[in-house]
Amino acid sequence: MTSRLLLVPPAIGPALREARFYDGSSSIDGAIRLTATDVPEAARVVLSPGARCRDTAEALGLRGTEAAALAPLDAGRWRGRTLAEVSETEGDALAHWLADPEHPAPGGESVHQLCTRVGHWLETLPDDRTTAVVEPDVVRATVIHALNLPPAAFWRLDVPPLTATELSGRSGRWNLRLGRPLGGQ
């Protein structure tokens, strides 16, 4: 059998628009003009913990459970602050964190740690269809792990809101289809 995973990043909200390190509380903007019929039926739906993913799943008519392994990248003491604020007060630490996937955010985690955490989750997927409404950094980490890319590629993967990134595979070998709009062919 083959595992199939559909990754859906949440709708845009204030935290994404303001380039704010996510703290789990910010939600999404307005109404989503999609329905669950725009997302293929799945045996299970899982979510990144936090309001954005919960609200997006609800707006799509999906009922799922939060998975701690799919939590977004932990920015530590930068949570809730904008990128500009952190750059102004801790520019050197931010630059080091962005440049070195092994370097953790102060009080948080590194990109490498996120990719490892999400990779462990990916390797335990059952052989059926899963839909995951997850933060963009979780989509990046999943793709990094699935394709065995270097963690340094993490910040070079662009993940638009409400798109579909699809992985299918078995025995640790994954194929990727990315970036189609939800509801599209």
Rank of each mutant, 00 (worst) to 15 (best):
M1E: 01
L7K: 00
L7Y: 00
P9N: 03
P10W: 00
A11H: 10
R17Y: 07
R20A: 05
Y22H: 05
S25R: 15
D29E: 15
G30M: 14
T35S: 15
T37D: 14
R44H: 13
L47E: 06
L47D: 06
L47C: 11
A51S: 14
R52E: 15
D55Q: 14
D55M: 13
T56L: 07
A57Y: 08
L60A: 07
L60C: 11
L60K: 09
T65A: 14
T65C: 08
A67Y: 01
L70H: 09
L73V: 11
L73P: 04
D74L: 08
D74H: 14
W78A: 02
R81H: 14
L83A: 10
A84Q: 15
E88W: 07
A93T: 12
L94I: 10
E102Y: 03
P106S: 06
G107P: 03
Q113T: 08
R117C: 02
R117G: 04
R117W: 05
V118D: 01
G119A: 08
H120K: 06
P126D: 09
R129Y: 03
A132I: 01
V138H: 03
V139H: 03
A141L: 01
A141F: 00
I144D: 02
N148V: 00
L149G: 09
P150V: 05
R156S: 10
D158V: 08
V159G: 01
T163E: 03
T165A: 04
T165Q: 00
G179H: 12
G179C: 13
R180E: 08
R180W: 02
G183F: 09
G183E: 12
G184F: 03
